[in-house]
């Protein structure tokens, strides 16, 4: 089971927000945003909500569970 996300998509839909800008907005490093985007790091609930709030979307729109190669 893995956590997938649409952060990259939302970044580009929101005036092509850079990873740096998003990181500064939610209070983490650019490297953390990069790791979350790549699915290498599972963010805390708080960070997931912060990112979702930044894009004005629900957490479920931003993150999804990948179960046995099937998106849920």
């Amino acid at each position: 089971m893995k956590l997938g996300n649409n952060i990259r998509k939302f970044r580009f839909e929101n005036n092509e927000t850079s990873q740096e800008e998003l990181a500064a907005a939610v209070g983490v490093t650019r490297q953390t945003i990069h790791a979350v985007e790549k699915g290498k790091f599972v963010p805390s609930t708080l960070l997931a909500f912060k990112i979702a709030r930044h894009f004005r979307v629900n957490v479920e729109d931003l993150f999804y569970v990948i179960e046995n190669n099937t998106e849920v």
């Binding site: 740096e20 800008e21 990181a23 500064a24 907005a25 209070g27 983490v28 490093t29 650019r30 490297q31």
Partner: peptide, 12 residues
């Protein structure tokens, strides 16, 4: 100038 980071990544 980049947006001011909350965590100093370069120093880290």
């Amino acid at each position: 100038a980049n947006p001011q980071p909350v965590v100093d990544e370069i120093m880290f």
